[in-house]
């Protein structure tokens, strides 16, 4: 076959693939958006569900998801960032580093449902937190930890060695060097990692199913050891198990739209931030 013709054929195929990918995602979002806008309103966001979720709003689910993100922020961010600092700046023993890399890189790919099993066994049963926000939140925290650590690690390691040397040569201590120089420059990258991790936790459903998400509550959770609703589970429950699947379709769509906007919004912020940060420091 003619070389030019061959090139044209292949390149058209690649363009077709890209078009198909864009198309599939646009279609998906289009359906969720148009389906959801029908029902979405201020009241929908701020009201309690009524009549077994078939009427009213989704406030408890929004609040539940918000609390879950809060727990993840409070637990996995400090531990994750501190671990990352340690790994980049302090760690030097051979086997610990290797064990750690193995754990972090491979556990990032472990299915979320497996983390659910962990939450059920440890937080719900062993530590006696029961089916509660706390059990689910801690489970999500552990799930996001690998993501958190590797993002923070990358950001910290990206700060050039010359900056550390400059600071140390002026008689700064190790921690002063980290605190005054390494962390400030790594911060935008760390923030990006934090937002991506938290948004991942917000959209996660499977671990919640094993750690006690509630199908319907007409009140907000009363403390961190109370049961709770969450947006992603609400979608699943309403779409597969509620009393009238077809009649509540608009509610399902609207809830999906709310979750989609929440997660995509957070990811958008994270990626824009990373872009600006990359433009700012060109070492």
């Amino acid at each position: 076959m003619d070389r030019k013709l061959k090139e044209m054929l292949f390149f058209s195929a690649f363009r077709g693939c890209a078009l198909l990918v864009v198309l599939s995602l646009v279609v998906l979002m289009w359906y969720i958006a148009t389906g959801g806008l029908e029902r979405l309103s201020w009241d929908f966001l701020t009201e309690m569900p009524r009549r077994a979720n078939t009427e009213g709003g989704i406030l408890p689910a929004i609040v539940g998801t918000f609390y879950l993100m809060l727990i993840v922020l409070a637990v996995s961010v400090p531990i994750g960032v501190m671990s990352a600092i340690y790994l980049v700046e302090y760690e030097q023993s051979s086997w610990m580093g290797r064990v750690f890399k193995l754990a972090v890189y491979n556990l990032a790919g472990v299915p979320s449902i497996v983390y659910g099993l962990l939450g059920l066994g440890i937080f719900v049963a062993f530590l006696g937190f029961g089916f509660s926000l706390m059990s689910a939140g801690l489970t999500l925290s552990i799930m996001t930890l690998p993501l958190m650590i590797s993002a923070a690690r990358e950001a910290i390691a990206a700060v050039p060695q010359s900056v550390r040397e400059a600071s140390l040569a002026l008689g700064a201590t190790k921690w002063q060097t980290i605190w005054h120089h390494v962390l400030p420059y790594a911060l935008p990258g760390i923030f990006t990692g934090i937002i991506l991790s938290v948004s991942r936790a917000a959209g996660e459903t499977a671990p919640l199913m094993l750690t006690g998400v509630a199908m319907s509550l007409q009140r907000l959770p009363d403390g961190f050891f109370d049961s709770f609703m969450a947006l992603p589970y609400h979608i699943f429950y309403m779409a597969t198990q509620s009393s009238n699947l077809l009649a509540t379709r608009p509610i399902q769509y609207a809830t999906a739209l709310v979750l989609l906007l929440l997660v995509l919004g957070m990811n958008l912020v994270a990626i824009v931030m990373r872009k600006r940060y990359r433009d700012r420091y060109k070492w």
Binding site: I32, L196, G203, I235, F236, L264, N267
Partner: peptide, 12 residues
Amino acid sequence: ILAGIPSVIFGF
């Protein structure tokens, strides 16, 4: 950004 769409939405 799209890689972050929650799986429950794809499921739905």
